[in-house]
Simulated scan of single mutants.
Amino acid sequence: MLRYFLENHLINISTEHPQNWEDAIRVSGEIMKSNNLVTDKYIDQVIADVKKYGPYIVIVPGVAMPHSQADSSGVLGTGIGLTIFPEAVSFDKDDSEKDAQLFFMLAAKDNKQHMENIANLSNMLMEDGLIEDLRKVRSLEDYRQVMDKYELSTKESR
C-alpha cells in the first residue's frame, strides 16, 4: 500500500507544522483536492465531525485517519491521501495519546469502498515498526527507503 501513495501522487511531506488540528486536516485535504477526490465541502465536514464527536480520527497514537460519511456530496472519488507533518499535532492538550503526525485522509463514494479503505489501511499500519519509520520521513527519498524496506519484509514473510 505504501507504493499506492507514491504512484498515485497522494503523498504530502509537509515541512511546516500546522497551527492546530483544524489546519492539519485542511493541509491533509489538499493532496486529496489536487487529485480531484474531494472538495472543500468534504474537508469542512471532517472538521465539523471532529468538533462534534471529538478526536475519533486519531486511531492510534501518532496516526490520524480524517474521514467523514461515504455519501458526502464533497466526495468526488475514492482514495487515501497521506500527509506527514514534521511533528505531532495535538487534538487534546491533556491527552498526548490524541496527538498525530501521520494523517491518512480517506474518501470513498460508497460504504463498501469506505470499509475496504479502512481495512487496507489498518492492515498496513499493523506492520511492526512502520508507524515509527513513517514518522521519521522528511523527504521523498526517506519515504522511498521506508517503502522499499517494508516491501522487502513483506516478500520475505511470504
Rank of each mutant, 00 (worst) to 15 (best):
Q113R: 13
M115T: 13
L130F: 00
Q113W: 07
E141L: 14
Q19S: 14
D128G: 08
I118R: 00
V146R: 09
L76Q: 07
D92M: 02
D148C: 15
D133F: 07
S68D: 13
K93P: 11
F91A: 03
F5M: 03
V60I: 15
S139I: 13
A64L: 07
H9E: 13
N111A: 12
A70Q: 08
S14V: 05
Q145G: 15
V75R: 07
S157N: 10
A24G: 05
G54E: 02
M65I: 10
F85I: 12
E151L: 12
N117G: 04
V38D: 03
V50Q: 01
L130T: 01
E7I: 12
S122C: 01
E22Y: 04
S139L: 13
F104Q: 05
M105I: 13
Y53L: 15
L130Y: 02
N36E: 15
T15Y: 11
P86T: 08
G81K: 04
V58I: 12
V137P: 04
P66K: 07
N120G: 14
A24D: 01
L121F: 03
N111M: 15
E97V: 10
A100M: 08
V89M: 13
V58Q: 00
Y4D: 08
R144C: 13
Q19F: 09
V89Y: 02
H114E: 02
I47G: 00
G62D: 10
S96Q: 13
I13W: 02
S73P: 12
V60L: 14
I25C: 00
G129Q: 10
Y150A: 08
G29E: 06
Y42H: 11
R138H: 12
E116M: 15
I13C: 04
V58T: 01
P86H: 09
N111E: 14
G62K: 07
Y4T: 05
L106A: 06
L106C: 06
Q113Y: 08
G74W: 02
I80E: 02
L134H: 02
M115S: 06
K51F: 07
P55A: 09
K136S: 12
I43G: 03
S153W: 09
I25Y: 00
Q101P: 05
V50N: 01
L121N: 06
H9W: 10
K112E: 11
Q113D: 12
K112S: 13
Y143D: 02
G79A: 14
M126Y: 15
V38Q: 01
G62I: 08
F103H: 03
V75I: 13
S139Q: 10
L37I: 12
I59N: 06
L134F: 04
Y143R: 06
W21Y: 04
D92E: 08
K109I: 14
V146M: 09
Q45E: 14
Y150K: 05
S90C: 10
L140R: 14
D23H: 11
L125K: 02
H67W: 02
V50P: 00
T39L: 10
E156S: 14
M105D: 06
V137Y: 06
E97D: 13
N12W: 09
L6Y: 13
E116W: 07
V58N: 03
V137M: 12
S122D: 01
S14W: 01
G129R: 04
E16W: 11
A70R: 06
F91I: 03
N8P: 03
I118Q: 01
N12A: 15
Q19P: 08
E97H: 15
